[in-house]
Amino acid sequence: MESDIEFYGFLISRYEYEEIDKISKYLFQRTKHRPTIGIICGSGLGGLADLLTDKDVFKYETIPNFPVSTVSGHSGCLVFGYLRGVCLIAMKGRFHPYEGYPMAKCAMPVRLMKLMGVKTLIVTNAAGGLNKGYNVGDIMIIKDQINLPAFAGNSPLRGVNDDRWGVRFPAMNDAYNKDLMKIAKHCAQELKIDRFMREGVYVMTGGPSYESVAEVKFLSNYGDAVGMSTCHEVTVAHHCGLKVVGFSLITNKCVSDYNTKEVANHEEVIQAANERAKDFERLIESLVEKCNKYEEFLNKRKSINVTNGH
């Protein structure tokens, strides 16, 4: 069951393996779909889930022991279905630590995806542009991350490790799959949207407040985009063996001038996401199709190696 335990003075709320397994079995009994790719839809990007056909939709509040999304722009449902013939599971709305949820609970759906057969995770988010060369509407392929909450010990992997998920000390230098990043760039070129594609480092802060001018100046030395999600999900995904590719939609420029009257706000984030949504959706559609072919290639190569005794 979900449990609260004391660990070095911290109260940790987490899900045991068996509890997540129960949730997966509950869903398996209610959908015929068996997904191989998972998508987490960021603020204003829930339209990605609407692209699926032959859908089964489960509102979060109807799933036993599942958190509930409380943020505007996050609908709050799991969607199973097909996109270009590939079976997917999409989170239409994610969970954030600033909503009051422990980090492990925010990332729990990633482990659920793992138990449901997902091999590849596509994470998306709306982010502020730290890099002064970025424009609102740019799409950044995430090449690496800086997980600031984890710097303070607030990691989704904190607590007793269950080896059924992964090793105690996972390396994170290869958390974002380089092959999938190349595929994403190829998709953008084919769709002729590479002119506003970027590649950079995503920084996660705790939120819900936006960054101060001093914080923006500090973070811009190390990252290209900043937001309040994603890093804990990617950490858990990598820990349990999923291949990950991630994208940040730049929905606002971070305020780095003390004299400006501009202020960051959630409404402009949603508006910018809506304006770039169609291009983003086309990119994800193409990526899903090619990720599936890439997975088939890896399985075929693995089968050949096993046959040859390697």
Score class of each variant (00 low, 15 high):
M1C: 08
M1Y: 07
I5Y: 01
F7S: 15
G9S: 12
F10Y: 15
F10M: 15
L11M: 10
L11D: 11
I12R: 03
Y15H: 10
S24N: 05
S24L: 07
Q29H: 05
R30P: 15
K32S: 14
K32R: 09
H33C: 11
P35D: 11
P35C: 08
T36W: 00
I37L: 13
L45K: 05
K55T: 15
K55I: 13
V57R: 07
Y60Q: 08
T62F: 06
I63L: 08
F66G: 11
V68A: 07
C77G: 04
C77H: 12
R84G: 10
R84P: 08
G85Q: 13
V86H: 13
C87D: 09
L88K: 04
K92M: 09
G93N: 08
F95P: 11
P97K: 02
G100C: 07
C106T: 15
M108N: 09
M113V: 05
L115P: 08
L115S: 10
M116K: 12
V118S: 09
K119T: 14
L121D: 05
V123K: 00
T124S: 12
G133W: 00
Y134W: 02
V136I: 15
I139H: 02
I142W: 02
Q145I: 04
L148T: 00
F151M: 11
A152R: 06
A152E: 15
G153A: 13
G153K: 04
N154P: 03
S155L: 07
S155A: 10
R158G: 10
D162N: 06
D163N: 06
D163F: 02
R164W: 03
V167P: 12
Y176H: 11
M181H: 04
K182T: 13
K185E: 10
C187K: 01
Q189D: 12
L191A: 06
L191Y: 01
D194L: 01
F196D: 08
E199D: 05
G207A: 11
P208V: 13
Y210Q: 04
E215P: 00
E215C: 02
V216C: 01
N221G: 13
C231P: 01
E233Y: 00
V236A: 13
H238E: 06
L242P: 05
K243P: 10
K243Y: 09
V244K: 03
V245C: 06
G246I: 04
F247L: 06
I250G: 00
N259C: 10
K261G: 14
I270K: 03
A273K: 05
E275C: 10
E275Y: 09
E275K: 14
R276P: 05
E281M: 09
L287M: 14
V288A: 13
V288W: 03
K290V: 07
C291K: 01
N292L: 04
Y294D: 14
L298H: 07
N299K: 14
N299Y: 08
R301I: 12
N308M: 14
N308Y: 10
G309A: 07
